[in-house]
Nucleic acid binder design. Structure first.
Lengths: 336, 336
DNA sequence: GTGAAAGCGCTAACAT
DNA sequence: ATGTTAGCGCTTTCAC
């Protein structure tokens, strides 16, 4: 039923070889023949069957991406943007995207192994990197190409695109200090995540530069969700004296913080300054609009994919490591 | 380099056939042999290479999903939740998920055709259905299984899981009316989308039941984004007299509306009631928390995938059409 | 410039 | 209970 290369060959009284080469753009096939082949193929709606091509070439032209889910769901717009970036670039380069959704842990590992062992993908895009990350060790060992969004200490030279979370948060602290804040709290993420460490480091650095001692009570850890930010902020606001500013490790955390502050009757931006990290679309419509450290997630997705394809296809000259400077966006959640 | 079924066979002095059948669980292979095979396979890290299996069986065990992007990005958490649902169920059933990201239009069509013609997927999950939807006609014609989230009029009997947007919005209108609102505005989505029509119908129905004539000025169309909701709401608020309540066709739209109202100095929930549709996670943390019509997107994703697999595998007894009743969640954006 | 033939790794019909 | 064999659709030597 589906049209194969043999159907095309038969119709033109050519061999499959010639058809294959005409379509692949080899130059040892007569120009007129090539035209006939191309026309016939289009007319017949021929497209190469990937399974056959893959089997023969031992390449899939498919990129794998395993999304971490925290809990049952992942509603962070961060993922959507990132996937859109990776996906757009992939399709521009004629690659497909194989997506799994898996919680960190055993089943995550299963997912990677399955895709690797059954050779379903040519390489992986990694996100939410951990400081100590088995995925890097594993993929290096299996010699499967990969590029990550974010750095890991497991192998510093692993190809990745990172965002300078340290510099970003440091600048944010500077901004908060310039507004007169000294009791600045920081709500981090699980410490296994690299982004957590980087951003916390930015916090410490900023405080140090401002000559403010960090009060350990003002540092806590949450789970990158707005619910988590909300619960954590409630505790922070109970301290006496309470912080005059709170930084969320990402925008969703900050959203929870805003809500907690407002429940106490605080006017965010006036009574307390709150800021996040990511720069998700909706943040600018929150009340008040969120001050945040913006990272171009969609663009990073594209570049990560771009790098990965370059590695898969054995291109030289690629830069293995890129550090992007995020941009502070000041809105009314810190400035009335 | 990678271990094949032949390697396993050779090591055990068996034929590839026996190994294949032992692994596939056929019962015409001796139990002891089966154990030897399974052990050896595990030890050697054998996993079947999918390209070969696919080529032979002419099945991919892969599900395609083409995500609509409006503009360059899609940050609606809706997609993440839906994909998580589809993906979880897919992996439970040993299917993979092939994701493309494409704007509606020509390139969207290319995407489907490419996946179909090169036989990369066994079926499709469809979302954001249009009233007149070429995808349905196309897939029916190509005899490719599919299940959609949402209905289309192109073929009412196409398998899908729908949410009763009409009933949901109707109940919302009832709620708003019970609060004393009579000038209730509705911001819709592009009219090609089924959800747009359904929800608008719910609006009209609710108004009719309450004996309120619909003022055409109070009905507008936006693009499902918060930026769109913001711009549209600004115009609505200029009318004299302005609406006392505004319904956004989805939560993101409603977020923009909230912001527009707040910029006018209105206290949302007191001076004006605002509500949305979807029930995305973050909505409960907005200020004020959003009244919304909740639909269980993650769960629907699972069920859609479940249905699709049943169809692909030729199971009988599946219900082709399901209508889910959404749930009104009342929060402070309508009730102080 | 074109064709014949081999073979990628697997499954399944058909022996034995 | 196990083995032999053919072939899925394609790419790629190699020969002409």
């Amino acid at each position: 039923m589906p049209v194969t290369i043999r159907d095309v060959a038969r119709r033109l009284n050519l061999s499959v070889t010639t058809v294959s080469r005409a379509l692949a753009g080899y130059d040892d096939v007569a120009e007129t023949t090539r035209q006939r082949v191309i026309t016939a193929a289009r007319e017949m709606g021929y497209m190469p069957q990937y399974a056959a091509r893959q089997l023969r070439r031992q390449r899939t032209e498919t990129i794998g991406i395993v999304f971490p889910t925290m809990g049952t769901r992942f509603s962070d717009p961060f993922f959507g943007e990132f996937m859109a970036g990776v996906g757009d670039e992939a399709s521009r380069r004629n690659y497909d995207l194989l997506v799994s959704v898996a919680p960190a842990g055993k089943s995550e590992q299963d997912n990677y192994q399955r895709l690797v062992n059954s050779r379903r993908v040519d390489g992986f895009v990694l996100a939410r990197m951990r400081i100590e990350d088995w995925r890097i060790r594993y993929l290096l060992h299996e010699e499967i190409p990969f590029v990550s969004f974010g750095r890991s200490e497991t192998d510093e030279k692993a190809p990745h695109i990172g965002v300078d979370g340290c510099a970003g948060i440091c600048e944010l602290v500077r901004h908060l200090v310039s507004l007169g804040n000294r009791r600045i709290a920081f709500i981090g993420a699980p410490p296994v995540l690299t982004l957590s460490r980087d951003r916390e480091e930015g916090y410490r650095k900023g405080m140090r530069e401002a000559g403010i001692d960090v009060d350990p009570d003002l540092m806590s850890v949450s789970d990158l969700t707005s619910a988590g930010g909300y619960e954590t902020a409630k505790k922070l606001l109970d301290y006496d004296p309470p912080p005059t500013a709170i930084i969320g490790v990402n925008d969703l955390t900050a959203l929870g913080v805003i809500r907690a502050a407002q429940e106490r009757g605080l006017s965010v931006g006036e009574d307390i300054a709150i800021a996040g990290f990511d720069g998700i679309e909706t943040g600018k419509h929150w009340h008040p609009p969120l001050t945040t450290v913006y990272q171009p997630v969609y663009e990073i997705g594209r570049r990560v994919c771009d790098m990965l394809v370059a590695i898969i296809e054995g291109k030289e000259t690629i830069q293995i490591e890129t550090l992007i400077q995020p941009k502070l966006i000041i809105r009314q959640s810190t400035v009335p």
